[in-house]
Amino acid sequence: NEVDLINFSQGYHEDLEKTYFNDGLNSLVFNRTANNCYFPATEIILSNIEKLKKSDRPFKVSFSMSGTFLDQCLMFRPDLIDLFKRLYDTGCVELLGETYYHSLASLYENRDEFETQVMMHSDKIKEIFGTRPTTFRNTELLYNNAIAREVYDMGFKAILTEGLQHVLKWRSPDYVYRAKGSDIKVLLRNYGVSDEIGYRFTHKLITADLFASWLSKITGETCNIFVDYETFGEHQWRDTGILEFLRHLPEAILKYENLIFATPGQVADVCPANDEIDVFEYSTISWADLERDSSAWLGNDAQKSAYGIIKDMETMVKQINDEKFLRIWRNLQTSDHLYFMCNKWLGDGDVHGYFSHYSSIWRAIGNLFMILHDFQKALGYKLAELNKR
Rank of each mutant, 00 (worst) to 15 (best):
C73S: 08
L74M: 14
M75E: 07
F76V: 11
F76N: 03
F76G: 01
R77N: 07
P78Q: 05
D79I: 11
I81W: 04
D82G: 03
L83P: 01
K85W: 03
L87M: 07
Y88K: 11
Y88N: 10
T90I: 00
G91T: 08
G91P: 02
G91W: 07
V93K: 00
V93M: 01
E94I: 04
E94K: 04
E94G: 10
L96Y: 03
L96D: 03
G97A: 08
G97L: 02
E98D: 09
T99Q: 10
Y100A: 05
Y101P: 04
H102D: 01
H102V: 06
H102Q: 10
S106E: 03
S106A: 15
L107R: 15
Y108K: 06
E109C: 10
N110R: 06
R111G: 02
R111D: 05
R111S: 05
R111E: 13
D112E: 15
D112W: 10
E113V: 09
E113Q: 11
F114M: 13
E115A: 07
E115R: 15
T116D: 09
T116G: 00
T116I: 13
Q117I: 03
Q117T: 04
M119P: 00
M119G: 00
M120K: 11
M120I: 04
M120Y: 13
H121V: 12
H121G: 03
S122R: 14
D123L: 02
K124S: 00
K124P: 00
K124F: 07
I125P: 00
E127K: 14
E127S: 13
I128M: 08
F129R: 03
F129S: 10
G130E: 08
G130K: 11
T131M: 09
T131G: 01
R132C: 02
P133R: 10
T135M: 03
T135C: 09
R137Q: 12
R137C: 01
R137F: 08
E140G: 07
Y143H: 12
N144Y: 10
N145F: 02
A146E: 12
A148E: 03
V151T: 13
D153W: 03
D153G: 05
M154V: 02
M154A: 10
F156T: 05
F156L: 00
K157D: 07
K157E: 14
A158Q: 09
A158I: 14
A158G: 14
L160C: 12
L160P: 09
T161S: 10
T161R: 06
E162W: 12
G163C: 07
L164D: 10
H166I: 02
V167S: 06
L168N: 15
L168P: 09
K169M: 14
R171G: 08
S172Q: 14
Y175W: 07
Y177S: 08
